[in-house]
């Protein structure tokens, strides 16, 4: 896939071509799921956010202008949607919302960070590690978290992150360094040599 491929597909989508839209969906559903899941650690919610993002892309297709990279356009929509939904979710009183769930409770929110095919001890370690990583990223401020999570997407460069978040590249770099420093502190027991 190339940048031009994506733009060409999106231009066809702008004209109402559903097959081109499906091709874009097939290409980017996984990185978007990855992005949302690392933000909320709730698989179902992340899947819904992916759906919403593509739906927004479709609804606003006529506004698309093939000037920049398609991925930055798509992740801008995703980021805006995440910020809206996050605010709504925080306002909603839900006895089992993400915010209300305690760390380590078996509420299924963090059960997706587990490698299959390992023994019980391995699975327990994976689960504990998954919990720790989820808790550590959730402890970051929203600004740091968005930079960090976007940085985990394959092929996402600092310039792209800067465009998506509408901040200078230098700010991306310094936020990434801050995020990593914070995460290293929170995950220190898992970063010792030999682990």
């Amino acid at each position: 896939m190339t940048v031009d491929d994506d733009r060409e597909l999106m231009v066809r989508v702008r004209g109402g071509d559903l097959a081109a839209f499906e091709a874009l969906y097939a290409r980017y559903r996984r990185p978007l799921l990855h992005f949302f899941h690392r933000l909320c650690w709730d698989r179902s919610f992340a899947e819904d956010l992916v759906q919403d993002t593509f739906f927004r892309l479709w609804k606003g297709r006529r506004r698309y202008r093939p000037t920049g990279k398609f991925t930055t356009y798509l992740f801008q929509i995703a980021k805006n949607h995440w910020l809206n939904e996050r605010e709504k979710k925080a306002r909603r009183i839900s006895p089992l919302s993400l915010e209300a769930s305690g760390r380590g409770e078996s509420n299924g929110l963090r059960d997706t960070v587990r490698a299959p095919g390992r023994g019980p001890v391995g699975r327990a370690l994976d689960r504990e590690l998954g919990e720790k990583i989820a808790a550590a990223t959730e402890a970051l401020s929203e600004k740091l978290r968005l930079v960090f999570v976007l940085g985990q997407i394959d092929g996402m460069r600092y310039a792209d992150i800067a465009e998506i978040l509408e901040i200078p590249v230098g700010t991306v770099k310094s936020r990434m360094a801050h995020a990593e420093k914070a995460l290293r502190g929170l995950l220190a027991p898992y970063l010792t040599p030999g682990e």
Binding site: R30, H37, A46, E47, V50, V113
Partner: peptide
């Protein structure tokens, strides 16, 4: 090591009914 740790998280597979 932090990067390796994050890479060790399994990839999620999108739901087939998406």
């Amino acid at each position: 090591r932090l990067a390796a740790l994050l890479r060790s998280l399994p990839e999620l597979s999108p739901s087939p009914d998406g």
